[in-house]
Amino acid sequence: MADVPLDPEEERFWRALQRVMVMLPKALDDDLVRSTGLTLSEYVVLMHLSEAADRELRVTDLASLSALSVSRISRVVDALTKRGWVRKRRPAEDARGSVACLTAEGFGRLEAAYPFLLSSARRRVMDHVGDDLISPLADQLEGVVNHLGE
């Protein structure tokens, strides 16, 4: 099955998906930087921290959730720390790693940026997908994500 060529519609879908995967992060990043000064990576890190218990995560877990390499997440967390939006600490149970903690100022920055990301997401994607397709597409894409995580 893996070596069966894609039919024309599958090929069209695959190529469109590849373009979306390349173009969308750049477009969202450009919109966020222009409107808020935050990069998309910084926004995603703040978002994941805001959703975590006690608003903190091990940096390695944060890298995984954010789909960033360990070296990239370290640079992003360091940049956010310099701005006072994140604190880093050594966990008591394991001094080998570090934990990133969202500060109140960082949470405020995330809240202020959210409307701009929402606007960008609507303008760049949601306004171009029919309402009747949202739920089935979400189901399909979640299935792909779950398979990729196996």
Rank of each mutant, 00 (worst) to 15 (best):
V70T: 13
W85T: 09
L68C: 05
L133Q: 14
I134C: 04
V70F: 09
E142G: 06
D131A: 15
E150N: 06
D3Q: 13
T81M: 05
L68G: 05
M126C: 07
W85C: 11
L46P: 08
P25D: 04
V125A: 05
P5M: 03
L62S: 14
P5C: 04
P5A: 12
T103S: 10
V76L: 00
P115T: 01
A95D: 12
A67Q: 14
H128A: 08
S41T: 10
L117R: 02
M1A: 14
V44E: 06
R58K: 13
Y114R: 15
E56I: 08
V76A: 00
P115Q: 00
T36N: 08
V86D: 03
G149C: 06
G106P: 03
L32S: 06
L38S: 00
D139H: 10
L65N: 11
A100T: 03
P115Y: 01
V76I: 03
H147G: 10
A121T: 09
I73C: 02
R90F: 11
E51F: 04
V76G: 00
L6Q: 08
A2L: 12
S120E: 01
R34T: 15
V59S: 07
L110E: 04
A53E: 13
V22W: 03
D131W: 12
V59M: 05
R124P: 01
L24D: 01
F107N: 13
L40W: 03
E10Y: 07
R12V: 04
A112W: 08
A100Q: 01
V59G: 01
R83G: 04
S119H: 12
S66K: 05
A67I: 11
D3F: 13
D131F: 13
V99T: 14
A138Y: 11
L24P: 05
L80G: 00
G97N: 11
D3S: 14
E9P: 01
W14S: 15
V99R: 10
V59C: 02
D61P: 08
L133Y: 09
G130Q: 09
R34C: 10
E105I: 03
H48P: 09
L141Q: 05
V33K: 14
R12M: 08
R122S: 07
S50L: 02
V33G: 04
L141P: 07
L46F: 02
A92W: 11
V4E: 15
V129M: 02
V45Q: 01
V125S: 03
V77P: 07
L6M: 09
D7G: 09
V77G: 07
A104Y: 06
R123I: 02
R19G: 01
A95F: 06
S135N: 13
L68Q: 08
H147Q: 14
R72P: 00
V33D: 04
D94K: 12
S35F: 06
G149R: 15
R87W: 05
R15N: 12
R19C: 04
N146I: 06
S120L: 02
D3W: 11
G143Y: 02
D127S: 14
R58I: 04
F116M: 10
P8D: 09
L32H: 07
L141T: 12
R83F: 01
G106D: 00
A138C: 06
L38P: 00
A53S: 09
S41L: 05
S41N: 12
L17Q: 13
